[in-house]
C-alpha cells in the first residue's frame, strides 16, 4: 500500500463572476481552470507562473481564504472542503506569505504573533517555552519575542513568519513567493533554512514562485501554470532541461541569467518583428501552425 499524498488537488476550479453596474453578472473569469496535482511526503513541488496565472488563487483556496467553485482539496487523503473538515485537520497546512512586512501585525510583538496559532489550536504545555523553541528553530535569538516587526530586517521577519507557520506542527507549508521581497544573499539563507527544516521535520512544501532559477534549485517536481491550467509538469530537471510547451520555453528564455552555461540551456525563442513575443503571440502562432497542418 502506498501512503496517500500529503496534498492532492483534484480538478480544482475557481470562477470569479465579472459584475457590471447594479451587480449584474456580465461574464466570468476562470482564475483556476481544472488544476490537479499531488505532492508526496517530504517533496517540494514548485508551482511556476506569472501574474494572472492563478497561482495565488490556488494558495488561497488551499488555505481556506476562498472557496473553490469546483473540484476537491485533500490533505492526507481527507477533504478539507467539507463542513466536517475540522480545525485540527486544517492545522496540518500552514502558509508563509510573500511579503514578510505585511504578514506580521505591526502592532504586535514577534512573540505575540507566534502565539496566535498556539492559542487558536489550544497548544498543550508551556506556550512561552514553545515560542522560544520556535525562534531557535529558525535561528533567531529568543529575546526577539519582545521585538516589533519594524525592528527586524526583511530576512528576520520572514524567519518569524516561518516560525509562526511551524508553531502547530503542520505537515504541509504553502510558500507563496517567500523570498521575492528579499535580497539574494538573504534569500539564499532563507531557502537553506527551509531545506534544513524540511529534512528535520519531514515537511512537504508547495512552493509558488515566478523565479525559475530558484525553483530549479529548491523543487523536485514542477508544474507550469498558465491562465489557470498546468500546461506542463514533471521532474524539475526534465522540464527545465527539455521544455515541451511553448509557454515553458518562453518563461525559461526570459530568465535573466548570470553565466554562459545557463544561457546555453535557455531555449531559443523566435523573435517576431525583432521583438520577444508575448505568450499570447506565441500560442496564437502555434494555433495557426496547427490549423494549417490540419488543412494540409
Amino acid at each position: 500500500m502506498t501512503a496517500s499524498p500529503v496534498l492532492e488537488l483534484r480538478d480544482l476550479h475557481k470562477v470569479f463572476p465579472l459584475r457590471g453596474t447594479f451587480g449584474r453578472v456580465r461574464g466570468e473569469v476562470r482564475a483556476v481552470d481544472g488544476v490537479s496535482l499531488s505532492i508526496p511526503k517530504g517533496q517540494v513541488y514548485g508551482l511556476a507562473g506569472e501574474s494572472g496565472s492563478g497561482k495565488s488563487t490556488i494558495a488561497r483556496m488551499i488555505m481556506g481564504l476562498t472557496r473553490p467553485t469546483g473540484g476537491d482539496i485533500l490533505l492526507d487523503g481527507v477533504s478539507i472542503l467539507g463542513r466536517q473538515a475540522s480545525l485540527a485537520h486544517r492545522r496540518k497546512v500552514q502558509m508563509v506569505f510573500q511579503n514578510p512586512g505585511a504578514s506580521l501585525n505591526p502592532r504586535r510583538t514577534v512573540g505575540q504573533s507566534i502565539r496566535v496559532p498556539l492559542d487558536a489550536h489550544g497548544f498543550p504545555g508551556n506556550r512561552q517555552r514553545r515560542v522560544a523553541a520556535l525562534l531557535e528553530m529558525v535561528q533567531l535569538p529568543r529575546h526577539f519575542a519582545e521585538r516589533y516587526p519594524h525592528e527586524l530586517s526583511g530576512g528576520q521577519k520572514q524567519r518569524v513568519a516561518i516560525a509562526r507557520a511551524l508553531a502547530v506542527e503542520p505537515r504541509l507549508l504553502v510558500l507563496d513567493e517567500p523570498t521575492s521581497a528579499l535580497d539574494v544573499s538573504v534569500q539564499a539563507r532563507i531557502i537553506e533554512l527551509l531545506e534544513d527544516l524540511g529534512g528535520e521535520l519531514g515537511l512537504t512544501y508547495l512552493f509558488i514562485s515566478h523565479d525559475l532559477s530558484l525553483m530549479r534549485n529548491f523543487a523536485q517536481t514542477v508544474g507550469v501554470l498558465y491562465r489557470g491550467r498546468i500546461v506542463e509538469t514533471g521532474a524539475v530537471a526534465q522540464v527545465f532541461g527539455a521544455p515541451q510547451h511553448d509557454y515553458t520555453r518562453l518563461l525559461l528564455a526570459s530568465v535573466p541569467v548570470i553565466s554562459a552555461e545557463e544561457e546555453a540551456m535557455r531555449p531559443a525563442i523566435p523573435l517576431i518583428n525583432g521583438e520577444i513575443p508575448t505568450a499570447e503571440d506565441l500560442l496564437a502562432l502555434r494555433q495557426q501552425a496547427r490549423s494549417k497542418e490540419r488543412q494540409a
Binding site: 539574494v184 534569500q187 530549479r216 534549485n217 529548491f218 530537471a237 553565466s259 552555461e261 545557463e262 540551456m265
Partner: peptide
C-alpha cells in the same frame, strides 16, 4: 554565489 542558477 547566492544567485540561484538555472542549471541547478
Amino acid at each position: 554565489a547566492a544567485v540561484p542558477r538555472l542549471t541547478g
